[in-house]
């Protein structure tokens, strides 16, 4: 019998709803994956570019005073609105030559030790520390491992955990695993709108659990690595919005936005005595985790 108007459409509506759900399920991996690609895009402003706008008087300092200088992490002193601070950041490199020289922003133990040294320098001179995070991860290499890669990251975390100085981190591109976290144990952590921050790269995750690196878009979705995801999970404090057409070539605009957030954060943090600040930082990280019991 033919269906009368307004009769028997329940099934059709249910089917359409199911289809909509399916489409949503298919669409969202694209969002996460698109963000991953944007976070890694070559045209994205990098640490040194941001610093040239944020702190035009920036002076780079080199070396870990033990073994070498790692170009994958740059650091130094500069001032924002007349206030001096220590800057640390991953630098991936622009063209192929610079990228190779900087090892694509993948730091070695020397890099993390330089970060420790400069963080402690900041503490000695009562300067805030500002970190710009943009790395695929710590460099996976034989010499790096033999040089104590794991210990270097752990001790960097330890230094930041105990630091008297106020600390602010911005994930400006790719926040890759332990190599990113090494500069991320801060009082305030912000992410750019299309930055990512993850425990593992989507490719590696896909290779491990799906046994197929081409499942990376699905892994990207499953990992919850976008800025809104991290804000929801309580891991970051805020998101720095980007121009509608993305951040490429927008270092000046984005630097102004970073500067605003940085200034207000440092003002808040500066109003608190160092001991209290350290206690609050401690509490912030102790609270992270979801479990029963």
């Amino acid at each position: 019998m033919p269906a009368l108007p307004g009769v028997g459409y329940g099934e059709e509506i249910a089917r359409l709803q199911r289809r909509l759900e399916e489409l949503r399920g298919e669409e969202s991996p694209t969002v996460a994956w698109k963000t991953v690609q944007a976070a890694r895009a070559q045209g994205r402003p990098q640490t040194l570019e941001y610093l040239s706008h944020l702190a035009p008087d920036f002076i780079e300092l080199h070396g870990d005073r033990l073994a070498g200088d790692d170009p994958a992490i740059v650091g130094g002193v500069g001032s924002v609105a007349g206030k001096a601070m220590v800057f640390l950041g991953h630098q991936k490199g622009r063209d192929l030559k610079e990228r190779q020289q900087r090892n694509f922003g993948m730091a070695r133990p020397e890099g993390y030790r330089k970060a420790q040294r400069l963080a402690l320098l900041a503490e000695r001179h009562s300067l805030p520390v500002v970190c710009l995070i943009d790395t695929p991860g710590a460099f996976p290499g034989v010499e790096a491992e033999r040089g104590g890669q794991a210990g270097a990251i752990a001790r960097t975390l330890q230094v930041f955990a105990g630091l008297q100085s106020p600390t602010v981190a911005f994930v400006i591109g790719e926040g890759g695993s332990g190599g990113a976290l090494a500069l991320g144990l801060c009082d305030r952590v912000f992410m750019l709108e299309t930055a990512i921050y993850s425990v593992i790269s989507p490719e590696a995750c896909a290779a491990l659990v799906w046994r197929d690196a081409s499942e990376a878009p699905r892994a990207a979705e499953a990992l919850h690595l976008t800025a809104p995801d991290l804000l929801t999970l309580g891991v970051i404090d805020g998101i720095i919005s980007e121009p509608r057409r993305g951040v490429a070539g927008q270092a000046r605009v984005m630097s102004r936005r970073l500067k605003r957030t940085l200034s207000s954060s440092l003002e808040e943090l500066g109003a608190v005595p160092p001991e209290v600040r350290r206690r609050l930082r401690r509490q912030r990280y102790l609270n992270l985790g979801v479990f029963a019991g």
Partner: peptide, 22 residues
């Protein structure tokens, strides 16, 4: 290492444990 299935929260356990060791 960190447990992939809990994403960024697992990475944050590194920070959490280091802070506690202080």
């Amino acid at each position: 290492g960190a447990r992939m299935q809990e994403g960024i929260l697992s990475l944050m356990q590194m920070a959490k444990t280091v802070v506690a060791l202080e």
